Amino acid sequence: MDTPADDVLAAYRAASQRVLDKVIHRLDEHCTAFIGLSPFATLATASADGWPDVSPRGGDPGFVRVLDEATLVLPDRQGNNRVDSLKNLAGNPRAALMFFVPGIDETLRVYGTATLLPADALDLDLTDFGRAPLSVTVLRVERAYFQCSKAVMRSGLWDPERRVERSVFPPFSQVLRDHCRDASVPEESVLRAGLLEEL
């Protein structure tokens, strides 16, 4: 018997052959160039029992290194020490990265199997913003493909006229005070001066 989900999925037409064919199983020159331009990516993981997590990652353009057509290196910068993604990878090594390049509407998806290593395990200078990583995630690439521009175009993500003024949303310090019920959270200027990564 069909489930409601089956009924919903039945409403979609089949993906075209070109959409299926764009999936490759390595990083070609276009993937490599795009990653080299990207200062921002999202990392998707799931725990051993299936709970998903998605985490932002950022740095100088090319902060994720391409070692070869089958290998990426993602440095992990010190942050709030929740290490949700790393805990997930320790129990379930499957991961996905989505790369963004400001000004380009297409995105790049890369899927693979991850290995966690100490930062000094690789003979690479991974210093970014004056800081060395505490660990690295080495992703063995299994699939990669470019996502079409529709979602980014619809969102107007790179359109300066659709940029939201920061003043329309409370400062992060206020959000933290409310969420944590903690009146001792410092003012925004203090957070921005160097404490933000601890929160």
Rank of each mutant, 00 (worst) to 15 (best):
L43S: 03
T45G: 06
A46S: 15
A48C: 05
A48D: 11
A48E: 14
D49Q: 13
W51A: 15
W51G: 08
P52C: 12
D53S: 14
V54D: 01
P56W: 09
G59H: 04
G59F: 06
D60R: 09
D60Q: 08
P61D: 01
P61T: 02
F63V: 03
F63L: 03
V64I: 12
V64W: 12
R65Y: 02
V66Y: 03
L67M: 14
L67S: 07
E69K: 04
A70W: 11
L74E: 00
L74C: 03
P75H: 06
P75C: 04
R77H: 07
R77S: 14
Q78C: 00
G79R: 03
N80G: 10
N80D: 13
V83T: 03
V83F: 13
V83L: 13
V83A: 08
V83I: 05
K87L: 09
N88Q: 03
L89V: 09
L89E: 08
L89M: 08
G91W: 14
P93H: 11
P93I: 10
A96V: 01
L97S: 04
M98C: 12
F100C: 01
F100A: 02
V101S: 04
V101F: 04
V101L: 06
P102H: 11
I104V: 15
E106I: 06
T107M: 06
T107G: 05
L108G: 08
R109Y: 00
R109K: 13
Y111C: 03
G112H: 01
A114S: 15
A114Y: 09
T115W: 06
L116P: 00
L117A: 09
A119S: 06
A119F: 04
D120M: 03
L122D: 05
D123F: 06
D123G: 09
L124A: 10
D125P: 04
D125L: 01
L126M: 01
L126D: 06
D128K: 00
F129Y: 12
G130M: 14
R131I: 03
R131V: 11
A132F: 02
A132Y: 02
L134G: 15
S135W: 01
S135V: 03
V136I: 08
V136P: 08
V136Q: 08
T137K: 08
T137H: 07
T137I: 14
V138C: 11
V138G: 10
L139M: 13
L139N: 12
L139S: 14
V141D: 15
E142R: 01
E142D: 11
R143F: 00
A144P: 09
Y145W: 07
Y145I: 00
F146D: 06
C148R: 12
C148S: 13
C148L: 11
S149T: 15
S149D: 14
V152H: 12
M153K: 15
M153F: 10
S155D: 07
S155L: 10
S155E: 11
G156C: 10
G156E: 13
L157C: 01
D159C: 10
P160F: 10
R162N: 12
V164Y: 02
E165F: 02
E165P: 04
R166V: 07
S167H: 04
S167R: 06
V168D: 00
F169G: 00
P170W: 00
P170V: 02
P171W: 09
P171G: 05
S173Q: 02
S173P: 05
Q174N: 07
V175S: 02
V175T: 06
